[in-house]
Design a binder for these strands. Structure first.
Length: 201
DNA sequence: CGGATGATCAACT
DNA sequence: GTTGATCATCCGC
């Protein structure tokens, strides 16, 4: 592969990613299933996402822009990171419609497993099994080293690296979990057959 | 395996 | 003062 070919392919991938984040949260949540994401080289395949739209009572953006959710109204591809329940951080990627974002809920770890284990061991007494390293939004963010300091950062550039799957993955839509409102929307997406989910589909 | 509980804090009312 | 887009652990079946 010569340099020109490599660059042309990289441009195509970047265009596809730009198209993906230009969609609304549901479209982006679907496009991200099967994609790979790395933060400073640590990451893996996205197997579970959850969509939040502004016209959605469960979304932080539903009541408009505030200090906390300002990143949700940033450019598509912006990272929105917030803290829940006092100790867990959640990593979202802003979608194309203002106030829309996709929560990354689970990864199949592919690279940097030692770094993940080291970070995740701070809360647990023993190093978690590989299946549990990134099975859940709080676990995923901790394993990738994503915290509040990255809120508002551009997730389309360093240290982030996102590679979409070549085709739309085979996935399942199911009711969102962990919410107290609007539980009926089928906006949780899971990679069919994955054993790395936060909970079975 | 399912339900209950405490940890712990940024943002909101 | 209250509230979570959660997790790890403990308890009972």
């Amino acid at each position: 592969m010569d340099d020109a070919g490599a660059h042309a392919r990289a441009d195509m991938l970047a265009d596809a990613l730009a198209d993906a984040v230009a969609m609304d949260a549901v479209g982006l949540a679907r496009a991200l299933i099967g994609a790979e994401i790395y933060v400073a080289g640590v990451g893996g395949r996205i197997v579970e996402t959850k969509a939040y739209r502004r016209d959605d009572p469960a979304s932080h953006s539903h009541r408009g822009r505030t200090a906390r959710n300002a990143a949700m109204f940033g450019a598509p591809g912006t990272a929105y990171v917030y803290r829940v329940y006092g100790l867990h951080d959640c990593f979202n990627i802003v979608a194309g419609a203002p106030g829309d974002a996709v929560l990354l809920r689970a990864l199949e770890p592919l690279a940097g497993l030692d770094a993940m284990r080291a970070r995740r061991a701070t809360l647990t007494s023993e190093a978690p099994a590989t299946r549990l390293l990134c099975a859940g939004p709080g676990r995923l963010a901790q394993a990738l080293g994503v915290d509040l300091a990255l809120n508002g950062a551009n997730a389309l550039g360093p240290p982030f690296e996102i590679a979409l799957a070549p085709r739309l993955a085979q996935m399942r839509a199911s009711p969102r979990i962990g919410l107290t409102q609007a539980r009926d929307r089928l906006w949780r997406f899971t990679l069919e057959g994955s054993r790395f989910l936060s909970r079975p589909a």
